[in-house]
Simulated assay, not measured.
Amino acid sequence: MRALDLNAATWRRSSYSNQDGGQCLEVADDFAPAVPVRDSKNPHGPALTFAATGWTSFVSAVKSGDLTA
Rank of each mutant, 00 (worst) to 15 (best):
M1N: 08
M1E: 10
R2P: 15
A3F: 02
L4C: 07
D5K: 00
D5S: 05
D5E: 10
L6Q: 04
L6P: 04
L6R: 02
N7H: 12
A8R: 09
A8E: 08
A8Q: 11
T10P: 01
W11A: 02
W11Q: 03
W11S: 01
R12V: 12
R12E: 13
R12I: 07
R13S: 07
S14T: 10
S14H: 08
S15D: 09
S15N: 12
S15F: 07
S15P: 06
Y16M: 08
Y16Q: 08
Y16F: 14
Y16G: 05
Y16R: 14
N18A: 10
N18E: 08
Q19S: 11
Q19P: 01
D20T: 07
G21Q: 05
G21I: 05
G22W: 13
G22S: 09
Q23W: 00
C24I: 00
C24W: 02
C24H: 02
C24A: 02
L25P: 01
E26C: 04
E26V: 01
E26A: 07
E26G: 04
E26Y: 03
V27I: 14
A28M: 03
A28V: 06
A28I: 05
D29N: 07
D29W: 01
D29Q: 07
D29K: 04
F31L: 05
F31E: 03
F31C: 04
F31A: 03
A32R: 10
A32K: 05
A32M: 05
A32Q: 08
A32H: 13
P33R: 03
P33C: 09
P33L: 04
A34M: 11
A34T: 01
V35E: 06
V35L: 09
P36T: 06
V37A: 04
V37D: 01
V37W: 02
D39G: 09
D39L: 09
S40H: 01
K41Y: 07
K41G: 13
N42G: 00
P43Y: 02
P43N: 02
P43F: 03
H44R: 12
H44P: 00
H44L: 09
H44T: 13
G45S: 10
G45A: 09
P46R: 14
P46E: 14
A47T: 00
A47N: 00
L48V: 14
L48D: 07
L48A: 15
T49F: 02
T49P: 00
T49D: 02
T49S: 12
T49V: 15
T49E: 07
F50I: 02
F50P: 03
F50A: 08
A51F: 00
A51E: 13
A51S: 08
A52C: 06
T53R: 12
G54V: 02
G54Q: 11
G54S: 12
G54A: 13
W55N: 06
T56I: 04
S57H: 12
S57C: 07
S57E: 15
F58I: 09
F58L: 15
V59F: 08
S60H: 14
S60G: 15
S60R: 15
A61C: 10
A61D: 11
V62K: 11
V62P: 09
V62F: 11
V62C: 15
K63H: 13
K63F: 01
K63P: 01
K63S: 12
S64L: 13
S64P: 03
S64V: 12
G65Y: 07
G65M: 10
G65I: 12
G65E: 07
D66K: 15
D66E: 14
D66Y: 09
D66I: 10
L67A: 08
L67W: 06
T68L: 11
T68H: 14
A69T: 10
A69P: 15
